[in-house]
């Protein structure tokens, strides 16, 4: 059958009346400040993964370069760009991010752009996003994960483990800022681990 199997591209304005909650379960984003370092829950990110189809790797990279106005990020890198940004997830696989407000249908938008050159999967709510920012951010990260944070530069991206949770860490501009994406269902545990480390290190 499949007559009604449609992903309805309906623009960026949701007209439904369901109220979202944040990964931490609140109606507003949580902010914590310890000794000048800020941990901010960031619900404003739309995400979709882009994985090149076999034989279409170059075309997929070209689409990505076009979208990002620069080369597709290499292994261990991210491309900080507005409105769409991206980081490398695996061989021929990237995560694309954009502001949720304007790009809630990011996956559909990307599918339209990439066609059959890539598999696109909505990832927006698979992740909880935290922005950790402040001059002593590095001291906090040292207690969280084995990323060589002192060597990590703006534009570097890596997957790592924080409190046994697989997370992405992106170093942003300015460099006193990292963005941490962790599994949404464990947002509370991840937040607890980050906040505990902040209080311990700062």
């Amino acid at each position: 059958m499949s007559p009604r199997i449609l992903l309805i591209p309906k623009g960026n304005v949701s007209v439904h009346d369901l109220k979202p909650i944040t990964a931490l379960g609140g109606t507003t984003a949580q902010v914590d400040v310890v000794a000048g370092v800020t941990l901010r829950e960031n619900p404003g990110l739309a995400l979709a993964s882009v994985a090149a189809r076999i034989g279409h790797e170059d075309a997929c990279s070209a689409h990505l370069a076009d979208l990002l106005e620069g080369a597709a990020p290499a292994a261990g890198k991210c491309r900080l760009h507005d409105p769409e940004a991206a980081f490398w997830m695996g061989p021929h696989q990237w995560m694309v991010g954009a502001p949720f407000e304007t790009h809630e249908d990011l996956a559909a938008q990307l599918k339209a752009r990439f066609g059959n050159t890539a598999s696109i999967t909505e990832q927006t709510d698979a992740w909880a996003c935290f922005d950790l920012r402040g001059d002593r951010m590095e001291a906090v990260m040292e207690l969280c994960c084995n990323v060589n944070i002192r060597a990590m530069q703006t534009g570097d991206a890596t997957r790592t483990s924080i409190h046994h949770l697989g997370c992405f860490v992106l170093r942003r501009d300015p460099a006193n800022w990292v963005r941490i994406l962790g599994p949404r269902a464990s947002a509370g545990s991840l937040h607890h681990a980050l906040l505990t480390a902040m209080k311990s290190a700062l």
Binding site: A51, R53, I54, G55, Q93, D125, A185
Partner: peptide, 14 residues
């Protein structure tokens, strides 16, 4: 290795 198939977990997305 040559199958055209891509995998990603979406457990927590939905």
């Amino acid at each position: 290795p040559d199958m055209d198939v891509q995998l990603i977990s979406t457990t927590e997305a939905w």
